[in-house]
Amino acid sequence: MATTTSSPTTILIAGHWLGAWAWDEVLEHLTADDWRAIPMTLPGLDEQDPERSSKTLDDQAAAIEQTMAQAGVCEDQPAVLVAHSGANAPVSLVLDRHPELVHRVVWVDSGPVVPGGVFAPDVPGALQELPLPPFDVLGEQASLEGLSPEVLERFRARAVPEPGPVLRQPVELTNDARLSVATTIVCCSIPSAQLLELARAGHPMFAEVANLEQLDVIDLPTGHWPMWSRPRDLANAIHSAASRVS
């Protein structure tokens, strides 16, 4: 496998209800190799922010851009963006606006959003925020495989309601250069063969995958939250993906 001569800055962005804390166990393994990894809490997911329920996808994308700038990311030193689950929407916006600043994007049980995609178009406009659902309901939407009762308890205790505007806002994409950014998909709750088949069939959740110019897939069988169920293996997958030469 070809590798870069130095480790690119890697920015870790977790999905709905989660903040930077969700990556703690993965970071233990990444930073053991002196890897420069920066976990983020997106706007709207900071429980100390009294205005968090009004935050939008644009706010989240701007925060990612600011983190990249503060880390010294530039065209000569592009970043690796790691997006888990619902973080795919703001990261898709960043890819559309600044493809030249991204060495590689790593989707963790996720993938790029199609132009105009909306996470939850049926969410009422009056809904200010969406709390973490009961686990029996959540488990019908995303696999909880590998999560112990202790992990689920921590998830429940630390989860922050997702802002309504984030769930309702269309992802406006106009720059086809985003499709040329080197991409790795870490497939957890859906095997890579099934994901690629769905992409070729034009499934709305995966249709954009079929348009990617540089795609690698890594199978990491587990549930939808591999940062807790298989943190060491996820860290290794991120390390491997980020080290690849585009």
Rank of each mutant, 00 (worst) to 15 (best):
D49L: 09
P50K: 08
P50S: 04
P50W: 03
R52S: 01
R52F: 01
S53P: 06
S54M: 03
S54C: 00
T56H: 11
T56Y: 15
T56S: 07
D58E: 15
D59I: 06
Q60K: 05
Q60F: 06
A61D: 14
A63V: 01
A63E: 15
I64G: 09
E65P: 14
Q66N: 10
Q66E: 14
M68S: 00
A69M: 05
Q70N: 15
A71Y: 10
V73F: 15
V73N: 15
C74H: 09
D76M: 05
D76I: 02
D76E: 13
P78I: 05
P78C: 11
A79S: 07
V80L: 02
V80S: 04
V82K: 08
H84C: 07
S85F: 06
G86Y: 10
G86M: 14
N88C: 09
N88V: 08
A89I: 04
P90V: 02
P90A: 04
P90Q: 00
V91F: 06
V91D: 05
V94Y: 13
L95Q: 12
L95Y: 08
D96E: 03
P99T: 09
V102L: 01
H103M: 00
R104S: 02
V106A: 02
W107N: 00
V108I: 11
V108L: 13
D109W: 03
D109S: 07
S110L: 10
P112A: 11
V113Q: 13
P115E: 10
G116M: 04
G116N: 00
G117W: 14
G117I: 15
V118Y: 04
P121Y: 09
D122V: 00
D122T: 04
D122K: 00
D122S: 14
V123Y: 09
P124V: 02
E129P: 01
E129H: 10
E129S: 09
P133A: 07
P134T: 11
F135G: 05
F135T: 12
F135P: 02
V137T: 11
V137L: 09
L138K: 09
L138Q: 14
G139D: 02
G139C: 06
E140Y: 06
A142T: 12
E145T: 11
E145L: 12
G146W: 12
S148G: 08
E150Y: 04
V151A: 03
V151G: 08
L152N: 01
L152S: 05
E153Y: 06
R154A: 06
R154N: 06
F155R: 07
F155A: 06
F155H: 08
R156Y: 08
R156G: 11
A159D: 04
A159Y: 14
V160L: 06
V160F: 02
V160R: 03
P161V: 13
E162M: 10
E162A: 08
P163Y: 07
P163C: 12
P163K: 05
